[in-house]
Design a protein around this nucleic acid. Structure first.
Lengths: 336, 336
DNA sequence: CTGAAAGCGCTTACAG
DNA sequence: CTGAAAGCGCTTACAG
């Protein structure tokens, strides 16, 4: 069966298309009796407006984009769900785009499909950043340092988070560290690492007593790296700080496999506070980055920019959540 | 700066819009020299076609929709990522829509935004199903029993999976069972439960020796239900079969909290085989449902329907993955 | 091989 | 309050 157009509705109701359109979008300006007749006709014909016609003419899509390179993982799922809630509540649709290159983002930003977008993307080079900002589509970058008149960014306080981790572990008496680094070039990775090292340096820990491995934020990679490290017979650290919870879990799996207990033999700490932390054994000590809130804030921020407000920089604080995966160092307690 | 339209490109290249359009979409029918001039003009003007104009006219969007009610969780993330891969590889975009009611799906199916869609939705009532099928937009339902001329469905073999779980646990010597049920009305929940009970009945297990709790596929709910059950002083089962891995993990958390060891005191088995199973302690015995493949198959199936092929029913097999969370029953070994 | 023209379905001034 | 008309940007027969 052919789908009804507004022309069909107008004919069915015996009015012009202009009036039909007004009855549907601007009900207050059409006489109640006429309006009812039109609405009734629309119902009878199962009329649903053609979104392409509407968008082409109205130059507005009431759609917000979310660009990510992958959807698997608590972080992305939360981000999408929370953004979606804010969008719906404000009469916008969320359009999630999983893309693998910046050119695709750029084209989508240019093709009039979106009124605004949130972009979560590692290492946007300067030229691409400029191009995207020049689209003059309201933009919110996550975890990146780009802003402009119609562009905001929201950053995790990753430097602080790294510092918090180091301070906590040092306070527990730890002196030999391993940091399961995230992804090179990733803003949060670099900052977490930088903050972590800063504090240890201030406390006088020799640089040789801090090992860096690259876990790429992935459980499997962290597991493999940790396993290789232990297999090489390198010294067991007092404490491990992983760039995210998933890689902390990978570390623990490798440690357990080699017969080490967490936290009795080694303390391990994550970052993010995904739901699993509480259910994992041992319950994971971590830094809660409130990543669920990022989606809410990001969506509100795009809406704000669409409203014409200027771009700005926002930050998202973290907080230490102490559970069971770190213990007071035996060494501090007097034992060797 | 104003975005260039095809008119601008045509003027810049000194040709008509028809020729400009052809150079862009149908390069072979325009003379190489002309084509080059047009492409060059498009480049100079940073021309990106207006998707709304194109879709309105061409009556084709090259976009496939995925409808889900939530994105958080390994299942949805995998589904989206794998569908996305297939879509991109075939020149389609994936448009993920997180929606909370079937009316939103229906409207989206009707508004000409999509060439086809995959719908993962619990308990679609008959009327809604009919309405959606009548949109005559190629549709693939996941985990549901709807099909038609342009509608396919892919189902997990959930009945078989429930049977496999029961057979395995019974074979281990288990005689008292607890099933952490999923979601009432959900096809897979009902079938897993049905299959599980079928086998136990065949083996002569009295119905009173099988407890059912409702975990709603959620870790937190399963944890709470299991905890309540144990707190009420009800008897510890020999084995727990949970409707998914997440709720199995919730069960284990509750059991551990009450001092019971898995698998020494109770065996626990999940379903799905999410990545975590391998890293969890104890490593989770489960039924691998190959849920990652569902996305790939679903995307291919929509593409097939768009090509004009008829709708059909597909199924996805499961396979037992034995890890560490189930052990041979002590009772079978002769101890009481 | 190229261009003039029609038209996809809609909204939006504007005239009455 | 209602309708005739223009036009958003594009593609697609069709004529030349």
């Amino acid at each position: 069966m052919k789908k009804a157009t507004i022309k069909d509705v107008a004919r069915e109701a015996g009015v012009s298309v202009a009036t039909a359109s007004n009855a549907l979008n601007n009900p207050s300006i059409v006489r109640p009796r006429t309006r009812e007749a039109i609405l009734e006709a629309a119902r009878r014909l199962s009329y649903v407006p053609n979104a392409n016609g509407r968008r082409l003419r109205a130059k507005e899509t009431r759609t917000i984009g979310l660009f990510v390179h992958v959807m698997l993982g608590d972080f992305y799922g939360s981000l999408a769900d929370s953004m979606n809630q804010v969008c719906r509540a404000n009469g916008y649709e969320l359009h999630i785009c999983i893309v693998s290159d910046m050119e695709s983002i750029y084209r989508k930003l240019m093709d009039h499909s979106l009124d605004g977008a949130v972009i979560y993307w590692d290492d946007v080079d300067e030229e691409s950043g400029r191009k995207m900002i020049a689209c003059d589509c309201p933009l919110v970058f996550l975890s990146l340092d780009l802003h402009g008149p119609r562009t905001s960014c929201i950053r995790f306080e990753s430097l602080k988070q790294g510092r918090m981790a180091a301070e906590y572990l040092y306070g527990l008496g730890m002196r030999k560290f391993l940091h399961m680094f995230g992804l090179p070039g990733n803003y949060d990775s670099e900052k977490r690492c930088e903050g972590f090292l800063q504090v240890l340096e201030d406390r006088g820990i020799p640089r040789d007593d801090v090992t860096l491995l690259e876990g790429r934020f992935e459980r499997a990679v962290a597991y493999r790296e940790m396993r290789r490290y232990l297999h090489e017979g390198r010294p067991l650290p007092d404490a491990v700080f992983a760039a995210n919870d998933l890689s902390a879990i990978g570390c623990i799996a490798a440690l357990n496999e080699m017969g080490w207990r967490v936290p009795e033999d080694v303390s391990v700490m994550g970052c993010d506070d995904i739901a699993l932390c509480e259910y994992f054994t041992p319950q994971l000590t971590t830094i809660r980055t409130h990543f669920q809130e990022i989606g809410t804030r990001a969506a509100r921020e795009v809406l704000r920019l669409i409203q014409g407000e200027p771009g700005r920089l926002l930050t998202q604080d973290g907080v230490l959540v102490v559970r069971k995966s770190c213990a007071i160092s035996q060494k501090k307690n007097g034992k060797p």
